[in-house]
Amino acid sequence: MKLRFFIVLALLVISQVSFAKVDPTAAPQHYNYRDASKQLRRVYYGELQETLYCGCKYDDKKNVDFSSCDFKPRDNPNRKSTKRAERIEWEHMVTAHNMGHFLSCWKEGGRKNCSANDTTFKIMEGDMHNLYPAIGEVNGDRNNFMYSQWTNNPTPMYGNCKTIVDFKEKKAQPREEARGIVARASFYMEKTYGVKLSNQDRRLFEAWDKMYPVTDKECERDRRIFKVQGDHNPFVHEKCKQ
């Protein structure tokens, strides 16, 4: 009799736990950047294992397949930068500087201080809707530069990758396939955390949002993030339902 009681009790507990895992009304589970980086493998697998700026494929060990996108590290005497091209990094489309420079923690010690001590910044820094795999060298070159569009015929910097960076003017022009993605991520960060867009950026991103509509892959990415983090990017999700 006791054995039967414990079996029934165990089944009830399991059923409650299983229900909690799929409860659509549950609060979002946000992570800090370090923990989000570990969870992102649950989002970027299979067809989504592709870099933002160059469309390169990579494997489960984060080894980049240069031949999949005709990528080539740019001519650079800095071996450290060239080595960085061989690895995948999680790129903040809305930069950490843009997220945190208005916070008091940033003024007192920059990103490192905010990551360690400011709860608001920790949540922003780890939000998966703003994180995308990128080749480390391109991520490093983009730095904290804002997005821009200044030429329809970019001179390639990384083999046949269409993303370019203007170091003198401190701006980055993403390839066409990335433009709608970064626009909708920027709208999300403004709506969710109040990271303001300049009038110039807003006009650019509104144009990109229309010119480069949501794709099936972007919808799948949003669905996977929802399963891990518990919330959607409404600027993507609402268009996926249409």
Rank of each mutant, 00 (worst) to 15 (best):
Met1Trp: 08
Lys2Arg: 14
Lys2Ile: 14
Leu3Gln: 09
Phe6His: 06
Leu9Asp: 03
Leu11Ser: 08
Ile14Arg: 01
Val17Tyr: 12
Val17Met: 10
Lys21Gly: 14
Val22Asn: 07
Asp23Phe: 08
Ala26Arg: 15
Ala27Val: 10
His30Glu: 12
Asn32Thr: 14
Tyr33Phe: 15
Asp35Trp: 05
Asp35Met: 10
Ala36Ile: 10
Arg41Lys: 15
Tyr44Phe: 15
Tyr45Ile: 10
Glu47Gly: 04
Leu48Cys: 07
Leu52Asn: 00
Tyr53Trp: 08
Gly55Trp: 00
Gly55Tyr: 01
Lys57Gln: 10
Lys57Glu: 07
Ser67Ile: 06
Ser68Gly: 08
Lys72Glu: 13
Pro73Asp: 05
Lys80Asp: 12
Ser81Thr: 06
Thr82Pro: 00
Thr82Cys: 02
Lys83Arg: 14
Glu86Asp: 13
Glu86Lys: 13
Arg87Ala: 06
Arg87Gly: 05
His92Pro: 03
Thr95Phe: 03
Ala96His: 01
Ala96Tyr: 01
Met99Arg: 06
His101Asp: 08
Phe102Lys: 13
Phe102Asn: 09
Leu103Tyr: 05
Lys107Met: 09
Gly109Tyr: 11
Gly110Gln: 08
Arg111Gly: 02
Ala116His: 10
Ala116Leu: 15
Asn117Ile: 08
Thr119Val: 11
Thr119Cys: 00
Glu125Leu: 05
Glu125Lys: 05
Met128Gln: 07
His129Glu: 12
Asn130Lys: 12
Tyr132Pro: 00
Tyr132Ser: 07
Ala134Trp: 01
Ile135Thr: 02
Asn144Met: 07
Gln149Val: 07
Gln149Trp: 08
Trp150His: 06
Trp150Gly: 07
Thr151Leu: 09
Thr151Phe: 04
Asn153Asp: 15
Thr155Pro: 01
Pro156Gly: 04
Gly159Ile: 11
Asn160Met: 11
Asn160Ala: 12
Cys161Thr: 05
Ile164Ser: 01
Lys168Met: 04
Glu169Ser: 12
Gln173Ile: 06
Ala178Ser: 15
Arg179Glu: 08
Val182His: 01
Ala183Gly: 03
Ala185Leu: 03
Ser186Asp: 02
Tyr188Asp: 00
Glu190Phe: 04
Thr192Tyr: 00
Tyr193Thr: 02
Tyr193Lys: 03
Asn199Ala: 14
Arg203Glu: 14
Phe205His: 02
Glu206Trp: 03
Glu206Ser: 10
Ala207Asp: 13
Asp209His: 10
Met211Glu: 14
Tyr212His: 12
Asp216Ala: 15
Asp216Tyr: 05
Lys217Glu: 15
Glu220Arg: 11
Arg221His: 06
Arg221Asp: 03
Arg221Asn: 03
Arg223Val: 07
Arg224Ile: 11
Phe226Asp: 04
Phe226Trp: 13
Phe226Tyr: 15
Lys227Tyr: 02
His232Gly: 01
Asn233Ala: 08
Pro234Asn: 09
Val236Ile: 15
His237Cys: 03
Glu238Gln: 15
Gln242Ser: 13
